[in-house]
Design a binder for these strands. Structure first.
Lengths: 338, 338
DNA sequence: TTGAAAGCGATACCAA
DNA sequence: TTGGTATCGCTTTCAA
């Protein structure tokens, strides 16, 4: 049995209320008493029961992380998401909050209902895809603080933290344009609408800046499924007038595209230049290594935690909608290296 | 304010104790009463307060995951660990347990003390490196159930789940021996002692099976630091009589080794064959793709959760010490593909 | 400056 | 079969 406040009270001949106040540094406790209590607490390795305190304070000091992992069996996105989580955990823990992971959110409403009504956590961070609209509507009704991580949200009263997809894509495509490319393909992910729209917008913005007309035939849809980027690249190469460069929605697609290009006996970057997005570890070990857009994942996670904690502390705060800067990392898939 | 048991009691003109028993399906409640209570609970979306229940039941229904991440700023191991976590989460959540993530375990004893004494969770899973000995001793004293994941533990009374490192290494090296290699290097990780010892043991066992003498000069130490595998490979290639094949402690080292080999203008696998361990995503996208040993990470995590939950349910259970089978994945870094 | 007592929301014993 | 009541461990008025 762990030490309780009662043990300390008995040991010192004080009441539990006095001990509680001494431990919580109330001003109306004699300094000497305070000292004795805190000293004994230290000696006995006393820590207040997390549940008892939560019950009384109506506050759990935990935040929940809802992970909507599209493909249960696949680790394709593991690395990316774990970085976000680590960012969240870092900031949350520094401020005395624990992180509760919810990974199997099936029958979504049900589980969410439980989390909210059972007051398991003080706030939620939503990561990942899926039909966020319903969830957001539900959470707003339940009046539980939450923020969306890694995704822009239309509703103006919802807080979110997302990378600057528009400018990231713009930088990627400008880089290709500066290298002289004029026919630039885009392998998109319409199944991730907000992000895809933004990256496509950045792509078009870059073209406009260079006075290059937009050609719809160069836009090819792909999905999260394995082999999808490969097929998209083949489709691009099969065009009557194929692109000399391709910007892919993410590194996974770009890496599959790279494979398709190689299979055709074409050289990267000489025949086709490639740019990805995310800067996952694999992008560094392909041949040639992939030019890509680096996202501050840890920072994004950390900011999400901060925004949520601020809101938990003061629920009158206005929604925070953050877009964090990203930067292009130039590697061998666009520029031949010595 | 969420619905409480009191609301239901008042609404139905029953006592809270009756409602509680009805909700928990006690046998001494009239079927009709039970039905009415459960129906209303459903309608009102009632879920019992997690904290109140925990306080009373002296049981949190949460398990803690202690992550000792060696390098805070690096994502090198993210993918690997996240798979383990997902395995843990999957099984824990299926059985009504939530997962609490502890990532910043600094001043280790302090934080651990708090987790135990504040009864934040019912049990712990330990992932990662560090001086487990002290932690294990501490946790045993605190009498909190725990299991070590992804690492073998010497103390016979401690439960752990680890991959079969000996046989994985043995399979990898046998594969090289079968291909005719007789000088096979090993790039090790002495900073991860148990695992390294096992993989080295598998290496030696394979050599013994083929009657190939062990040559200490072919054993090169590396570390978790970036560039370490690269340097180790260079050292091997600089030997008077360099190896024709190399088995690396993990894929990260193998991939760095691959780079070193290429830089020397040598061919993989023709001049040097390479085998890694872990089957991380990157091992698939190198040129050539890496032959490696695949570990059942999800399964390992899942088993760890199961072992822990079993022990939480019955603390008289004997320690479970599991070694899960791994298997070799043959790719282009050892066998030229058509 | 200290302590008694109520209460957070549930469970469980015992009596009715 | 149901209800009263103590209790889990802590916090927080309100009196003393």
């Amino acid at each position: 049995m762990p030490v309780t406040i009662k043990d300390i009270a008995k040991e010192l001949g004080l009441s539990v209320s006095t001990v509680s106040k001494a431990l919580n540094d109330y001003p109306d406790i004699a300094p000497e008493t305070k000292r004795r209590v805190q000293e004994l607490a230290q000696i006995l390795d006393y820590y207040p029961s997390a549940t008892a305190r939560s019950l009384r304070r109506r506050h759990t000091n935990k935040i929940g992380l809802l992970l909507f992992l599209r493909i249960v069996g696949s680790s394709l996105t593991s690395e990316y998401e774990f970085e976000l989580i680590r960012g969240v955990a870092f900031t949350a823990e520094k401020q005395g909050y624990n992180l509760v992971l919810y990974t199997t959110v099936t029958r979504e409403a049900d589980q969410l209902m439980r989390i909210c009504r059972a007051r398991e956590v003080d706030g939620l961070i939503l990561i990942g895809a899926g039909h966020l609209e319903e969830l957001i509507a539900f959470l707003s009704r339940e009046a539980i603080p939450f923020v969306v991580l890694n995704r822009r949200v239309e509703q103006p009263d919802v807080s979110f933290i997302a990378p600057d997809n528009v400018n990231g894509a713009r930088a990627a495509v400008c880089h290709l344009l500066e290298l002289g490319h004029r026919r630039i393909g885009y392998i998109g992910r319409p199944d991730d609408p907000e992000t895809n729209i933004d990256r496509l917008a950045g792509y078009r913005q870059a073209l406009a800046e260079f006075g290059v007309p937009f050609d719809e035939r160069l836009i090819i849809p792909a999905s999260f499924e394995s082999g999808s980027g490969y097929r998209a690249m083949k489709a691009l190469l099969d065009l009557p007038s194929p692109p000399t460069a391709v910007f892919a929605f993410n590194d996974h697609l770009a890496i599959e595209a790279l494979q398709a290009v190689k299979e055709r006996g074409l050289q990267v970057p000489a025949d086709v230049a490639l740019v990805g997005f995310d800067d996952i570890h694999s992008s560094l070990v392909t041949t040639p290594p992939l030019t890509t857009v680096h996202q501050p994942l840890l920072e994004m996670g950390s900011q999400a935690a901060q925004v949520l904690l601020d809101r938990i502390a003061d629920d009158s705060l206005p929604p925070i909608r953050l877009t964090l800067p990203v930067h292009l990392v130039v590697r061998g898939s666009t520029v031949r290296r010595t």
